[in-house]
Every structure is written in structure tokens, then in C-alpha cells.
Design a protein around this nucleic acid. Sequence first.
DNA 1: CTTCTTATAAGACAGTATGTATTGTTGCCG
DNA 2: CGGCAACAATACATACTGTCTTATAAGAAG
Lengths: 196, 196
Amino acid sequence: MPKLWNETIETHRNAVRSAILDTTAALVAEHGISSVSMSQIALSAGIGRATLYKYFPDVDAILVAWHERQIQAHLEHLAQVRDRTEGKSDLKLEAVLQAYALISHSHNGGAQAARLHQGPHVSRAQQHLQEFLAELLGEGAEAGIFRNDVAPGELAGYCLHALEAAGGLTSGDAVLRLVKVTMTGLQPPGVAVTGH
Amino acid sequence: MPKLWNETIETHRNAVRSAILDTTAALVAEHGISSVSMSQIALSAGIGRATLYKYFPDVDAILVAWHERQIQAHLEHLAQVRDRTEGKSDLKLEAVLQAYALISHSHNGGAQAARLHQGPHVSRAQQHLQEFLAELLGEGAEAGIFRNDVAPGELAGYCLHALEAAGGLTSGDAVLRLVKVTMTGLQPPGVAVTGH
DNA sequence: CTTCTTATAAGACAGTATGTATTGTTGCCG
DNA sequence: CGGCAACAATACATACTGTCTTATAAGAAG
């Protein structure tokens, strides 16, 4: 019983911290990410503004902590999916990737709503970029070079997002490998030796 | 000669607008995206604060305009690459994708520097996620199910980014197609009918 | 040259957010 | 009870916002 006290206090701090994160997430979802303030969060969470500063130094730290918690939850969810899926690595991976895709799908549904409060953020030019790629992909698909079981627009979105992984790479060779991998994904179905 | 005047004024406005965008980009690169303010931009651009408000309503509008201009420049660059590349659609596309990947590569080098000013933004948990996937991919590669000419970590980054395209999709079926396309990219090389 | 127009700089203004410091209160512990 | 830690409330100086007013400079037209 040396620290029955430290236990309850720690518990309380975690509860408050969690409540702050929840409140912030709600405010972001409602008013957009750029309009949340420390004052607003403290008020909405029902705690004093000075108290909030004892937990987080600024809004950005709160958003980072929230994002961290989100990813952590996703990670645990994906680990569950992996362990519950019977079969070899490819089946497990397919299940995990599917779960992650669904997370991204539903998650960006909420993010889109948040964006709409502060204008159509990225859309205009980026859409042109996607259409530009879709045109090339459409031509290739007609010539039988690329897969035609997926719409060119969807493939273009896949390419753009996949290639943004280049931002985290260090060497130029790695970038070339990424392009190769991405283009492999564009191959027509049924050309593989192992049919599914 | 009705509007020799309107021409010079338009030119001037474009010049000022461009200067605002350049200044903002420099400030973002230096102090991070969350610390730029209208006051700072006006001061740094050498124009009055009230004048700045005549060009853009708020910081966000400036950032959006800047981003728009960036993408527009990329688009023109990519169109040039496409037109200058001889060959069929697949060769053109490979050149275009490579160019885009290089853009992402160098661009996120700058973005990373900007992030570092406001903390290691996404890193911690997201890296765990990537390692989690890399483990599965490594197992599969050893079993010959996935390609082993690219490191598991790089493949994991590819998967995570590619699947984030799910955020822009509408139907659940489209998400499943995206997972299929992404997994196609993981196939070992040389299984295709057309050997490059 | 004078007058008009237009973009601008400079400053004032109220409202709000920030970060910090100082109060007094509550509840748990020995 | 006395001590301790977290807290709410409040105050304060500073900074950014968005709008408005006034004055200046430069080109265009008489």
C-alpha cells in the first residue's frame, strides 16, 4: 500500500487526458481542424484553461496525442485481425490490408466533413492531376497493357497515393523500386502464375 | 488602347499575388505551417497588412492558393514528360510516374524540415504500424508468396500510402478493388506473362 | 499642368487567443 | 488536524484578427 494514492491520481490524470482528447476530436469534427483553440477545448471539456496547460503545452500537442492514440487503436485492431485470420501470410495480409483500407475509408469520410467547414481544401488542381493520369491509364487499358477490371480514375488515385510513399524514402534507388512496385499493381489480372 | 492601363494593373496584381505566395512558402518552410500569420506574411512580403487582406481573406486561403499553384506546376511538368517520352502508353506512364515520385521525394524532404520545427509529427505510432506490416510482408517474402526484390519496410510504406486512397472512394466495392490492386503490386517479379 | 482614379501604407479599433502568475477551494493522505 | 496536490477562477501583458479611416504616390485623362 505504498502508493494507493499514486494509483488513484494516475487514474484520474489518465481520465482527464482522455476526456481532453475526446473533446478535441469532437471539436475538430464539428468546426474543422484550424478553428480549435485551447480556450475552446478547456471550456468544452469542462476544465479550467490553466489546467489544460498543465496537460498539454498547445493545441498541436493535443492533436498529435490524439492522432497517436488513433493509430494505436488501429494497430491493435489490425493485430486482432491478423491473429484471427486462419491461413498463410498472404491471406492474413489481405485481411489486414482490407481492414486498414476500411479504416481509411470511414476515417476520411469524417475528415471530409471537417474539411468542408474550411473550404474544398485540396480538390481543384489535384483532381486535374488525377484525370491526367486516368487518361494515360485508360489508353493503356484499351491497348491491353493495363488492367481494365478497375476504372482508370480509381487506378490513378491508387498511383498518386502509392507514390507519395516516396516522401519517406532516403535513396533514389528506393524511389525507382517504388515506381516499379506501383506499376506492378497496374498489371492486368490473370497474368500471374498463381491464379489467386 | 482602351485598356493599356488594365493590362499593367493586372500584371502588378499578379506580381504581388505571386510574391505573397512565395513569401508564405518560405515562412512555412522556416517556421512550420502552424505558426504563419497574416501579420507575419504582410511584414515579410513588405506590404501593408490591410493590403494583404485585399488579396486573401485569411491564411488558409493563401496556403490553398499556394498548394494549387504547386500542383499546377507539377501538372505542367508531368505533361511535358509525357509528351517528350517516345513509345506506348506504358512507357509514357512509367516516365510520368517516375517524375511524380521524384517530386514527392524532394518535396517531402522540405516538408519534413518544416515538421521538425513543430515536433516529430506523425512518427511514433505510424512507424509501429509500418513495422507491423513489414513483419507480415517479410514472412510472406520468405515463403515466396511476395516479392523479395524490395525490402519489407519499403513495401509496407507502399501499402499504407496506397490504401489511403480509400479515403477518396465512395463505394465499399471500390475499396475492395483497391486492396486487390495494391496486393497485385506485392507479387514477385517475373510471374507476369509479358516479361517487361 | 491639373484632376481623377486606384493601389497602397499607416494607424486606430474592438474582439479574441495565448501563456503565465496568483489567488482560493476541494479532497485525499498521514 | 495539518499538509499536500490538483484544480477553478481570475488577472495580466502580449499578439493576431478583421475592419475602418486617413493620407500618400503614381499613372491616366482633361
